[in-house]
Amino acid sequence: MKALVCHSFGLPENLKMDELETPQIQPNQVLIQVKACGVNFPDTLIIQNKYQFKPELPFAPGGEVSGIAVEVGPEVNHVKKGDRVFALTGWGGFAEFVAADAHKCLPVPEGMDFVTAATTMYNFGTSLFALKQRANLQNGEKLLVLGASGGVGLAAVQIGKQMGAHVVAAASSKEKLEICLKAGADEVINYSEQDLKETAKAMTNGEGFDVICDPVGDQYAEPAVRSLAWGGRYLVVGFAAGSPSAIKMNLPLLKGASIVGVFWGAFAQKEPAENMRNFEQILQWIQEGKVKQHIYKEYPLEQGAQAIRDLMDRKVIGKNVVIID
């Protein structure tokens, strides 16, 4: 089968179009003919051997796919051959076929296209888990979303609004913030021009934010924690801006605040029933038109390396997706 292959760990430019063996599935797996594959921040790490999951070389990146179930293991009951499906695979999605564990594979709802299906699970799943299970976000609370124009950020903006929060979106350009406003943000902060801590203080009359969703980290982490309200919750979602940040522990102490880790992949594995309820809610919102993925660009498989490069260079607003023809 055709695939965009990582033969040695490194940058996206090392990836090459090549032939790989079509996967052989286990009894609890589904073989998917891939139609679309979402591009996510872990893809930028896994090809550099910097992610917590480390596949053996050679492999194709791409962990969020949609397509057709062409083979179904005998232990799989909720998916049948010929179904349109979407799934999380960890890697392998930048290829014509990929094997998916059954508990991470779902039928695509009627009326949903493959691009939407391939760009929903990771971002919306992470954001709802973060705001619901980890932050316990309440109606009327003030939510600040950093990196709000990215895939997870835009999902958090929309989900925060559905949960009744007053949402402030922070991003690095006017263009990105315009998309955030269209997605439902009540107010915005341009942290390339405005001081994050001082602007947040002014916006909240000095009280701070009840919840801060941070998929960015690095230089923004400490001013974000300083912008928490009493009893606030700072969600550690990821580190798209660089490495994990050092935070002075007197800050959460003085604010009676919580620093809360958000590892959605582990939640999906350890609490599958609760994760499934989250997805039922997400799919309902999508079908009702209440949340929607913003697609930055579609790339053919041969340009998959460029799709990862664009994400690394922070050009992507919303989500980019690789199309497998």
Score class of each variant (00 low, 15 high):
Q281A: 06
A169H: 02
W264S: 15
T119S: 15
A273H: 12
S127A: 15
K35Q: 10
E13D: 14
F9D: 02
G82N: 11
R84G: 14
A240L: 11
L20N: 04
N28Q: 12
L45F: 12
A69Q: 05
A60L: 08
G184T: 07
D195H: 06
G151E: 02
A165H: 01
L251M: 09
L144E: 08
I286G: 07
E280N: 03
K2M: 09
P12E: 10
K104P: 00
A246D: 11
I247S: 07
H7F: 15
K2Y: 00
G151Y: 01
D210I: 09
V70W: 03
E280K: 07
D313H: 09
V316F: 00
A307S: 05
K315S: 01
L31A: 04
P74N: 06
G231Y: 08
Y191V: 05
Q29Y: 08
Y122C: 15
E288F: 03
Q52P: 10
Y122P: 05
V34D: 07
K104E: 10
C37T: 08
P74M: 05
P244M: 08
F124Q: 04
S127G: 05
P27V: 03
S192Q: 14
G261R: 04
G265C: 04
W91G: 08
I189L: 09
K248F: 13
A185Y: 09
A200D: 02
P300W: 10
A60M: 11
I25Q: 01
K81L: 09
A229G: 11
E274N: 11
V108H: 04
S127H: 01
K255T: 00
A155L: 02
V322R: 02
A60W: 08
P58N: 12
G140A: 08
R314T: 02
S172H: 08
D113H: 13
R309N: 03
E13Y: 04
I295Y: 04
N49Q: 11
V157Y: 03
N139Q: 15
M312H: 02
V39I: 10
G231D: 09
E175V: 12
Y122G: 09
G63N: 06
G92I: 05
G93S: 04
D113T: 15
D113L: 11
P58D: 13
G151R: 03
Q162N: 14
V98F: 03
L128R: 11
W230D: 09
H7Y: 15
N123C: 13
G231R: 07
R84S: 14
I286K: 10
I25P: 07
C213S: 12
I259Y: 04
F97K: 06
G111V: 07
D43H: 07
G140T: 13
N40E: 05
P12H: 14
V168S: 11
A118H: 15
A305H: 07
G289P: 13
H294S: 07
W285L: 02
V211P: 00
P107A: 13
K201R: 15
G265L: 00
N275E: 10
N275S: 15
L235K: 00
M1Q: 10
L11N: 12
Q138Y: 04
A156N: 01
S227L: 02
P252K: 01
